[in-house]
C-alpha cells in the first residue's frame, strides 16, 4: 500500500463515492429523519414524536412486513434448490452451452420485469395461454391461476432466478477440482463430497446469492400487484401507498425504515463475513 496507490485510489473513488453519498446515503438519512416526524408533515422542522412507528404496530403494518419476508424466504429457498443443479452443470458439465445459457439468462434482465410478469398474467389468467388452450382442446376449463400467495412466490422465483444462478455458479467454480478428487480418493461418496467439500467451499456464492434474492424479493412489489392482485399486501406496497395516496411521508418513511433495518442487518452481517476480492476472483 504505497502513497501513490493511496492517492490514485482516493481520487478515482471520489466521483462514485460522491454520487452515492448525495443520492443514496443522504436520501436514506432523510427517510430516517422523516420517519420520526409527526403524521402528515412535509418538512423536517417539527418536533419528533415517533408516532409513525407506533402506527406500524397499531395498524398491523407488521403483517405486510411478515408477508414480504416470509414470501422472500420461501422464494430464496426454492431458488437455491432450483439453481444448484443448473449452476453445477454450468460449471462442470456444459461446455459451450454454459455460454448460451449465460447470455440468454442475462438477456431476460434487459426485459422490463413488468413486461415479463405481464406475460405470466396472460399465460396464467382465465382465458390465458394455459387455460385458454386447455379449454379449447379438452373442453375443460379452470379458474385462472392468478391472485393467490403461491403465484406471488412463483413470480419472485421467476424474476430473481438470475440473481441466485450467477452467484451460485461463481461459488461452485471456486471449488478446486483437486479438492473433490482428493475427497473421492479418500473414499467419500457423491453425497459426502457434496456435504463435506462442495457445499462449504461454495458457501460464499450461496451466501451472496441467497442474500441478493432475499433482499430484492423482500422489497419487491410488482409480483404481488400484477400476479397476486390484492391477495396480500406487501410492505413496499404499503410504503408506496403511504407516500402517494396517503400523502403521509412520516408513515411511509417509518415503514421503509423498518424494511431497511431488517435488510441492513442482514447485509452488514453477511458482507462482514464474505471476502469480496475472493468472490469476484481476484488474482492473488
Amino acid at each position: 500500500m504505497n502513497a501513490r496507490e493511496q492517492r490514485l485510489g482516493i481520487c478515482s473513488s471520489l466521483p462514485l463515492s460522491a454520487l452515492l453519498l448525495l443520492t443514496f446515503i443522504a436520501p436514506l438519512l432523510a427517510i430516517a429523519a422523516f420517519s420520526i416526524m409527526p403524521a402528515k408533515v412535509f418538512t423536517l422542522a417539527h418536533i419528533p414524536d415517533f408516532s409513525a412507528y407506533a402506527e406500524f404496530v397499531r395498524e398491523g403494518y407488521w403483517k405486510s412486513l411478515a408477508w414480504s419476508l416470509g414470501m422472500a424466504a420461501v422464494a430464496t429457498g426454492l431458488l437455491l434448490v432450483i439453481c444448484w443443479p443448473l449452476a453445477y452443470a454450468m460449471v462442470r458439465i456444459f461446455k459451450r452451452f454454459t455460454l448460451i445459457i449465460t447470455l440468454l439468462v442475462v438477456m431476460t434482465l434487459f426485459v422490463s420485469e413488468n413486461i415479463r410478469l405481464f406475460g405470466w398474467v396472460i399465460t396464467l389468467m382465465k382465458g390465458g395461454l394455459f387455460e385458454g388452450y386447455m379449454h379449447s382442446w379438452t373442453g375443460i376449463g379452470f379458474d385462472g391461476l392468478l391472485y393467490n400467495v403461491p403465484v406471488i412466490i412463483f413470480g419472485l422465483v421467476y424474476i430473481y432466478l438470475p440473481f441466485m444462478l450467477f452467484p451460485l455458479t461463481q461459488g461452485i467454480s471456486m471449488i478446486p477440482d483437486d479438492a473433490r478428487y482428493a475427497a473421492a480418493d479418500m473414499g467419500a461418496n457423491r453425497w459426502q463430497i457434496f456435504k463435506e467439500v462442495e457445499l462449504p467451499l461454495a458457501a460464499p456464492g450461496i451466501v451472496v446469492g441467497s442474500l441478493l434474492t432475499f433482499v430484492l424479493a423482500a422489497g419487491a412489489v410488482a409480483e404481488s400487484k400484477l400476479l397476486g392482485g390484492q391477495a396480500v399486501i406487501v410492505i413496499s406496497d404499503d410504503v408506496e401507498s403511504a407516500f402517494t395516496y396517503g400523502q403521509n411521508w412520516p408513515l411511509g418513511s417509518a415503514l421503509a425504515m423498518v424494511l431497511i433495518m431488517v435488510i441492513s442487518v442482514l447485509i452488514v452481517v453477511t458482507l462482514m463475513k464474505v471476502d469480496l476480492d475472493k468472490v469476484m476472483g481476484k488474482v492473488k
Binding site: P176, D178, A179, Y181, A182, A183, A184, D185, M186, G187, A188, N189, E196, V197, P200, L201, A203
Partner: peptide, 20 residues
Amino acid sequence: VPANKRPTCMVFQSLALFPH
C-alpha cells in the same frame, strides 16, 4: 473399482488440502 472404493490414496500436486 470407482475412485472412492480403491484402497489407494494420492498426494496431489496442489496437495488438495481442504481450506475450510
